[in-house]
Simulated assay, not measured.
Amino acid sequence: MTKNLSPEAIRSGAAALGEWFHNINLNGVWTAPNHFLGDYPGQVWQHFAHLVPQDLTGLSVLDIGCNGGFFSMEMKRRGARRVLGVDSDERYLAQARFAAGTLGLDIEYRQLSVYDVAALGERFDLVLFMGVLYHLRHPLLALDLIHEHVVGDRLLFQSMQRGSRAVDQVASDYAFEEAAHFDAPAYPKLHFIEHRYAGDVTNWWVPNRACAEAMLRNAGFEILEHAAREVYLCRRVEPPYGAGAVYPAKGPRR
């Protein structure tokens, strides 16, 4: 723990860890006061904070892609018994450890890829998967692995979305000759970014709303609430069609 630091020590310690993407209040010292998105992610958190129970006493939480640890710390403040934040970027993890230590919050942070969550060997009552999907080259695989290995009950999910906000009723099957539905704006679409989007080379796939919801359902997550534009609270259920991370998930071709 690094609590009881002076404001000057907090400011210099935070600055030494590089640019922060999470604007976190460390006892009066903000880590990213000039964030291009404003007070991020605190401002957007207000729109869906009610999806998480105020009292998480006795529950375990996994924060995948935890970045600077804002959401992990919010979960610990609500009394979660165990909070584990994982990220593939050690710089973000160093920031998260510094922030949690400064605030006196007992949170574990570990460097881990979303594709390696099976290595954790445990399921969590609540899993946060926020702002990660569109940074992945294999997004549906990630959802499958999260479902198969770490979600015990609830998943809080967020992904950037682009394209139509409408959701069409999709038929369970189409004849090979039919193709018009692929051109419909509200048909599930996953947009591939070959180069960059918003100057970020790590942006790979961006779904429209219909696609984000279809991917969640197909990976075995029942959507319980869609309280904010891109945020979903889901419950773990059995995936349809025998879907899963291992091919051929749907069985032999017929």
Rank of each mutant, 00 (worst) to 15 (best):
V167T: 05
V167A: 06
V167F: 03
D168R: 15
D168S: 15
D168Q: 15
D168I: 02
D168N: 13
D168Y: 07
Q169T: 13
Q169L: 10
V170P: 04
A171L: 08
S172K: 08
D173Q: 12
D173T: 04
D173A: 13
A175G: 14
F176A: 09
F176Y: 12
F176K: 14
E178Q: 11
E178I: 10
A180P: 09
A180L: 15
A180K: 15
H181P: 09
F182K: 09
D183V: 10
A184T: 12
P185V: 13
A186H: 14
A186L: 11
K189R: 14
K189H: 15
K189Q: 14
K189L: 06
K189S: 10
L190R: 02
L190G: 05
H191G: 00
H191E: 04
H191K: 06
I193N: 00
E194L: 03
E194K: 15
E194N: 05
E194G: 13
H195P: 04
R196L: 07
R196G: 04
R196P: 00
Y197T: 04
Y197V: 00
Y197A: 08
Y197K: 07
A198M: 11
A198E: 14
G199F: 02
D200K: 08
D200P: 06
D200Y: 03
V201R: 11
T202F: 02
T202S: 13
T202M: 06
N203D: 06
N203Y: 11
W204C: 04
W204R: 12
W205T: 05
V206N: 00
P207T: 05
N208I: 10
N208D: 03
N208H: 12
R209G: 01
R209D: 04
A210C: 14
A210V: 06
A210F: 11
A210Q: 09
C211A: 15
C211S: 09
E213M: 12
E213Q: 10
A214I: 06
M215E: 06
M215S: 06
L216E: 01
L216Q: 02
L216M: 02
R217E: 13
R217H: 05
N218Q: 11
N218F: 14
N218W: 14
N218V: 01
A219G: 02
A219L: 01
G220V: 07
G220N: 04
G220P: 04
F221N: 01
E222R: 06
E225Y: 12
E225T: 03
E225K: 07
H226G: 11
H226K: 11
H226F: 04
A227I: 03
A227Y: 12
R229W: 06
E230V: 10
E230W: 06
E230R: 07
E230D: 13
V231A: 03
Y232P: 01
Y232R: 14
C234E: 06
C234T: 03
R236F: 06
V237F: 03
E238F: 09
E238I: 09
E238Y: 10
E238G: 14
P240C: 11
